[in-house]
Write a protein that binds this DNA or RNA. Structure first.
Lengths: 203, 203
DNA sequence: CGTATCCGAAACTGTTGAGTTCCGTATATA
DNA sequence: TATATACGGAACTCAACAGTTTCGGATACG
């Protein structure tokens, strides 16, 4: 981006944003560990090995930095265009449980825990969290449930909207409130003891 | 309590704690509105029409005050010894939905949202929250499910532990994350579209 | 009525952290 | 090599807040 910016050649090198990822990632780490109010800009700068002034050259305030960090967290988690297709609902749901996904998901929930109290004061932040953390997980379940309906595996009148939120909410509750790990065993239990029975499979 | 404290008559009137409820209640209100870090001791004092010094005469720190407020929040919500007994699981679950209960429950969740980020730094607080907010709700459901098993309404091998947490987690998620109201309609949907199907009733 | 005690209010202290400024250095361009 | 720019780092300002102290007034008790 640096040398391609022909629009203003006079300014020598323009701000290149090349260190944004490190900084935003450092912000997420501190957020997960300390929460929004426990996080200081100095902590983020130190962890990213950047000067505090550098952060303020890019973001006007701590709040904007945090929102940007949450927004940029989306990627790396789930590829919506390449979901498993095993032929059964259970197969699809279980196939979504990968160590990589679990790890990423737990990290997101930790960040969310840290942001919880700040959310009340910033609708913008609430929106960013919903878009980056909540919605993607529910969307996957919606798609898998819809496919199961299409192939006639489950009844067409089940409540997709509600059922697609069971796993995300139970996982959030488990991390935020119960402080217990969202591991493979937990997720399998949710699938076999709640979701599948609720759509009429098994039992 | 004042005049009954015969153990130390020499001290004139002892500290009587008569204003504790107002103060603790003010603390809960501010917590729900501002969160732990947004709450200042001055705010609590002002709302309780008390002097800040009075608060510090009773509690050694802001943290202790908050923990005490959460611990004393228990009462008023649910009477565990007097649960509805309608003869069916659905009847019992629906009978638990009372405006008073909903209101109290939503308030508790607001307080919890405000405490979320502070919880990470204080295991004592986490324990208090679990005892005062989380556990009571799950306990009710456990009892109702166990009774349904005893009367043969549902299978004996259902996962009580998991199923009793569905409504509390979905409610928490809805308040904390989705910022939508936990009303009667929502709770009925949870019962009819998730819990009952999952235990093998209906569908 | 005098005295002891607790109260609310307000002034005060010390610390922490957001946001700013400054400076010496590294780097890219020419 | 000379110049311009952004960088990391550190020192700074300023406001907010936890916790303390002080004081004048209310209230109970003898």
């Amino acid at each position: 981006m640096t040398q391609l910016d022909a629009a203003s050649p006079r300014l020598g090198r323009r701000r290149d944003h090349s260190r944004d990822p490190e900084i935003l990632n450092a912000a997420l780490e501190v957020l997960a560990e300390e929460g929004y109010d426990g996080m200081t800009v100095d902590m983020v700068a130190a962890r990213a090995k950047a000067g505090k002034a550098t952060l303020y050259r890019r973001w006007p305030s701590k709040g904007e930095l945090v929102i940007d960090a949450v927004v940029c967290m989306k990627r790396g988690d789930i590829d919506l265009g390449n979901l498993p297709d095993t032929g059964t609902l259970r197969g699809d749901l279980v196939a979504m449980i990968k160590p990589r996904t679990i790890e990423e998901s737990e990290r997101k929930l930790q960040v969310m825990a840290g942001l919880m109290s700040a959310v009340a004061r910033s609708p913008e932040l609430a929106e960013a969290i919903n878009r980056a953390i909540i919605e993607p997980r529910a969307e996957v379940n919606r798609i898998l449930l819809r496919r199961a309906i299409d192939r006639g595996e489950i009844a067409a009148d089940i409540d997709i909207e509600t059922l697609s939120m069971i796993t995300p909410s139970m996982a959030a509750y488990r991390t935020l409130v119960l402080k217990r790990p969202v591991d493979r065993e937990f997720l399998i239990t949710m699938i076999d003891n709640v979701v599948l029975p609720a759509v009429g499979l098994r039992r």
